[in-house]
Design a binder for these strands. Structure first.
Lengths: 202, 202
DNA sequence: AGGGTTATGTACTGCTCGGTCAAGCACACC
DNA sequence: GGTGTGCTTGACCGAGCAGTACATAACCCT
């Protein structure tokens, strides 16, 4: 009986997400969102509630998409540690390809909204945790396959790699070149490949 | 002949800096700045010009202070690579001690203001470049002292370490624990210490 | 075809924003 | 101690903000 919506909710969320990603939370006005989504303010409030809620939806959408992309990369389980390097490479490619410098929304969200918004912190933490889990599986398989020395702590190593991806993202925003970022990938690969435990130190 | 200012300019900049660091650029109002500095709006405009200019001054101040702190750490030239690890440790300590989650202003500035503000990008790039230079000297000395394998590319390795500090900063905002961050320090140290070039791969 | 229900568009609210400005004030110099 | 300079104060501006109210429109079901 009710009048149906004439817009697609997920599409609107994605449009809002891109605006937030470009401008950040505070600098995005409802008018911006209205223009980007094509919805009137009334519809926005009717559908989502206030600005904070739209942002959360948009951020959630971004995180889900990131997770899906990563899952796809890590689906190739047989390559062991190579899969993890592939993920690092993917982050580099994304960073480099991001000509508009929108940047990763997880970084943007935590930087701008934490500690003000616990919901953002929680979603970001969960998403990063997922990435680390994927990396860790890859590390462990690499250890099983003899690609990675088994004495290395897989939790620490996977967190290091997560940390490096976050760092790459940050450096990308400061205009470091593709070659610079690839150099990071290459040296960490070299260090992991060339690691042999010394008898003295554990 | 003119009436002298009754405030200390550098003190006002520091107060403004802290507000910007906490709230970010867009979310900081002139009223916030006025309250934090104790100056009237008129005085602020008279002294600094518009909001953008105050921000740049504040950011510049932050970068200078970061550089000074880092220079002090790296002044101990004899420790070679240990100095670089000390720097990483310092970033961890800062991140952990930052109970208010203000975060590093370089990260905040590049995330929020790039590409909109080229001046911010430039200042951030210069500051990060300085850090990398310090790290690189430390790496090279470490190689000379036999702490670090000489076949490793010092530019790449120093950029990797810079990258890791940026990553640590980012993870800190997502509430990773002190132990997690220390684990990152420990594993990168282990990788560098335990690296031996394989005859096959360079 | 009509009615119930919800979506939509628009005008509007009260507020706060960044920024201005004029009037007075305090000091260093004469 | 007067005078001029430029600092300070606080009222003020138009614009844009997040959010609301309400009349109207569109659809499904009966």
């Amino acid at each position: 009986m009710p009048r149906p919506r004439k817009f697609h909710e997920a599409t609107a969320v994605r449009a809002a997400r891109d605006v937030f990603r470009r401008r950040g939370y505070a600098a995005t006005s409802l008018t911006d969102l209205s223009e980007a989504t094509g919805l009137g303010k009334g519809s926005i409030y009717n559908t989502f509630g206030d600005k904070e809620t739209i942002y959360r939806r948009a951020f959630h959408d971004y995180c889900q998409e990131s997770i899906a992309t990563s899952d796809a990369i890590f689906a190739d389980a047989d390559s062991g540690i190579e899969t993890a390097f592939g993920y690092v490479r993917q982050i580099i490619d994304e960073t480099v390809a991001d000509a508009e410098h929108m940047g990763c929304m997880i970084a943007k969200a935590t930087t701008e909204r934490v500690p003000e918004s616990p919901a953002v912190l929680e979603e970001a933490g969960r998403t990063l945790g997922h990435m680390q889990d994927l990396l860790r599986v890859s590390v462990i398989r690499g250890q099983a396959a003899g690609q990675v020395d088994s004495s290395l702590d897989s939790a620490q190593l996977s967190l290091l790699m997560l940390c490096i991806t976050r760092g790459i993202e940050a450096l990308g925003k400061a205009d470091y070149t593709t070659d610079d970022l690839r150099g990071i990938e290459s040296i960490i690969r070299q260090l992991i490949d060339g690691y042999t435990p010394t008898p003295a130190a554990e």
